[in-house]
Design a protein around this nucleic acid. Sequence first.
DNA 1: ATGATTGTATTAGTACAATAATACAATTAA
DNA 2: TTAATTGTATTATTGTACTAATACAATCAT
Lengths: 131, 131
Amino acid sequence: MKLSFESGKPLFIQLKELMRTDIAAGKYSPGEKLPGVRDLALWANVNPNTMQRALSDLEAEGLLETRGTSGRFVCQDPAVIDGAKRQILGELAYSFLLKCRELGIDSSEAKQIIDIIIKDSFEERNDTENE
Amino acid sequence: MKLSFESGKPLFIQLKELMRTDIAAGKYSPGEKLPGVRDLALWANVNPNTMQRALSDLEAEGLLETRGTSGRFVCQDPAVIDGAKRQILGELAYSFLLKCRELGIDSSEAKQIIDIIIKDSFEERNDTENE
DNA sequence: ATGATTGTATTAGTACAATAATACAATTAA
DNA sequence: TTAATTGTATTATTGTACTAATACAATCAT
């Protein structure tokens, strides 16, 4: 678990995105109790306050929920988790396609780029139709 | 021209990415002389020092070149510009696909997401084969 | 009730991004 | 030569991300 200082993003934002991904990926199930802020901070090698900020941000997004002092829990509703997943991927796909447009790349070229990277870096023997 | 403070990225990095995109998009042609740091800073509404840092970063990438005190110029070699373009899009596509993998989305689902967004937000009447 | 664990709040200090105001060296134009 | 314009360097100051070290209130187990 290494967070980079070099990335140009504040630590707490990187943490937020990391935890958001972990939740969306199902590493923590809906309704599951999270480890305490101090444990998570220890695990991520950051200050508890920094982790706290990331978690309370995720709470504001509806992905986490604090029940009194008995701990922090992942949202119970699987639909919310799934919505977050869709949003994460949607935003990434959108920024890719937006940049394509800015650079004068049309949608078919954009798809080609996706295909190339899939074949280059995500080796999957799929035998799908297209070419 | 508005740069956001909210984005969680330092200004000079946002500026660097903005200028990189403009160059890759051909808003400045290969070999063309750029406006001076002071003018660019004025136009982008930032301090000249901040713009300077962004530009010297792009210089380190090989996209810009400083010729003595007669000004800063866009790299003459179109291949370099094109390489930057490819790299920008490659990185965005890669992070999308990587996140897909992290979230348990396979490549065909990933392509579906791309297609949906193209049809939703990038209205293009294309009549391509697939489906 | 006691003590441990939970999330939260506060305060201080360090590092760095960004602004501001210059100053300087080198080229270009007059 | 002189004056303007280029990129670059320097110094000081402000704001904020982050760390650090606590302290506090509320719950739970005993």
